[in-house]
Design a protein around this nucleic acid. Structure first.
Length: 408
RNA sequence: GGGUCAGUGUCCGAGCGGCUAAAGGAGGCAGACUGUAAAUCUGCUAGCGUAAGCUUACGGUGGUUCGAACCCAUCCUGGCCCA
């Protein structure tokens, strides 16, 4: 008997449930069941915004349940209209296959897929082979269009137009649940609160066809206290793929959490015991920096492992406390591309800026530092004295560091 | 299928023949202040060029005009109304 329900509830992860809380509690805390959450393979990497259901599944697994991650290879061909006001770009099957591989790798950082302790399935495996007529004969009678049109997730789109293609999304997701129930005895679906309509559609479908009650639960959609979207930062989304967002950047993302969010995020995004997290909730002002560091370290550790997390922490310490550029993100460049070249050009080559115009703008605004010295001359060229240590330390603004290692 | 309205920069959204690289807002970046926070204030926010300047850009394509995001034709996409 675990305290899973209390665990999730105290971390603020329960928003709505298809059953009363008391029953939800006994189900969550009861014998092992299979629980599923869906992930859209629309990109080759998941990002911070996907983390909540992942963390919930991970906690469920720890409590003895079996997570089923459904990668929507089939539904991605349709596009979920929930929460968006325009139609999604359609993806090719090849692209989806490719994306799935990346997503799978990332999920396994959080969830143990060995010995079938968790499953990863692609809904294309069942959706892709359905015959249209058979399918609508089987499923169609159980849905009324009237009801569907009333679903929240379609509401916004009623204004802007909703294609029949997307209208089917809900039915397909419901069918997923039905299939998972049949195949794996899956009796719980979780998802963000925007998935509520889709989840209850699945719950109802199973009840109508199988006469069996299955459950659904949503987590609150997280917005940051400053109103910004979760998972977005300076450069864009924060990805779980280390190639797309380095462990250092990932660490920094969490380290820069707004004061008001630190404790809330610790509850959601780390495995630290609630009792320990509570200690930080009394912290105010500058003290919270300590909490932020712990949040960043823990979150990075879960995804990238302890070694990387320590490295990131160390680098941050050097950069922001000691003023040393040790451990900053580093790239190597051949000396031929550096000596005598325009600094602005070098920065663009190094990926610090997207264009030369941007680089120049930044210099004019006093936002570029090289080897600890603010660069004020747009026409600055790099010479041997600038890389006498075989390294050029660049800093854009206050927080973006990049070391260029010189290859002779 | 008919009618009608619309399609603008990352997003929202003004412009409706020259003064428009395109108002305003949001977002992003930078500077100041700070605690690697928030709030606030300031600047920047297509590319290329040290620069004068040049090149792309207002759904696509053609056209009218000295000159078009703006006018015309046609096509595509979407809304609404009718069938």
């Amino acid at each position: 008997m675990t305290q899973l329900f209390e665990e999730l509830d105290s971390r603020g992860l329960v928003k709505q449930s298809t059953i009363e809380l008391e029953r939800l509690k006994s189900i969550l805390n009861g014998p092992s069941l299979s629980v599923y959450a869906g992930f859209d393979p629309t990109k080759s990497s998941l990002h911070v915004g996907h983390l909540i259901p992942i963390m919930i599944l991970a906690r469920m697994q720890t409590a003895g349940h079996r997570p089923i991650c459904v990668v929507g290879g089939g539904t991605a061909l349709i596009g979920d209209p929930s929460g968006r006001d325009s139609m999604r770009e359609m993806l090719t099957e090849e692209k989806i296959q490719e994306n799935m591989r990346g997503i799978q790798a990332q999920l396994s950082r959080f969830i143990d897929f060995s010995e079938e302790k968790a499953l990863l399935v692609n809904n294309y495996d069942w959706l892709g082979f359905e015959n249209y007529i058979d399918f609508i004969r089987k499923i169609g009678p159980h849905f009324t269009v009237n009801r569907m049109l009333n679903a929240d997730c379609f509401k916004i789109r009623m204004e802007k137009g909703l294609s029949f293609l997307e209208f089917n999304y809900m039915i397909l997701q419901a069918y997923d649940y039905f299939t998972l129930y049949k195949k794996y005895e899956c009796t719980l679906e979780i998802g963000g609160d925007d998935q509520w309509s889709n989840i209850i559609a699945g719950v109802e479908l199973v009840r109508r066809i199988e006469g069996r009650e299955v459950f659904g639960m949503t987590n609150p959609l997280l917005t940051r206290s400053d109103g910004k979207k979760m998972g977005k930062s300076e450069g864009g989304a924060i990805w779980l793929d280390a190639e797309m967002t380095s462990p250092f950047e990932y660490f920094q993302y969490w380290r820069n959490t707004t004061d008001d969010d630190v404790v809330r995020f610790m509850k959601i995004y780390t495995f630290l015991p609630i009792s320990e997290i509570e200690r930080y909730s009394s912290m105010k002002g500058e003290e919270l920096n300590e909490a932020k560091e712990i949040l960043a370290y823990e979150a990075t550790k879960i995804l990238h492992g302890e070694t990387e997390a320590l490295k990131a922490k160390e680098a941050a310490l050097n950069l922001f406390r000691k003023g040393s550029a040790d451990g900053a993100p580093e790239i190597t460049m051949n000396i031929n591309l550096l000596n005598g070249k325009l600094l602005a050009d070098i920065c663009v080559n190094a990926g610090l800026f997207d264009s030369k115009s941007e680089a120049k703008r930044m210099i004019l605004q006093g936002g570029l530092t090289m080897n600890g010295v603010k660069i004020e001359d747009v026409a600055k060229t790099v010479s041997a004295s600038d890389f006498s240590k075989d390294i050029i330390e660049l800093k854009k603004g206050k927080k973006t560091y990049l070391n260029i290692k010189v290859v002779r």
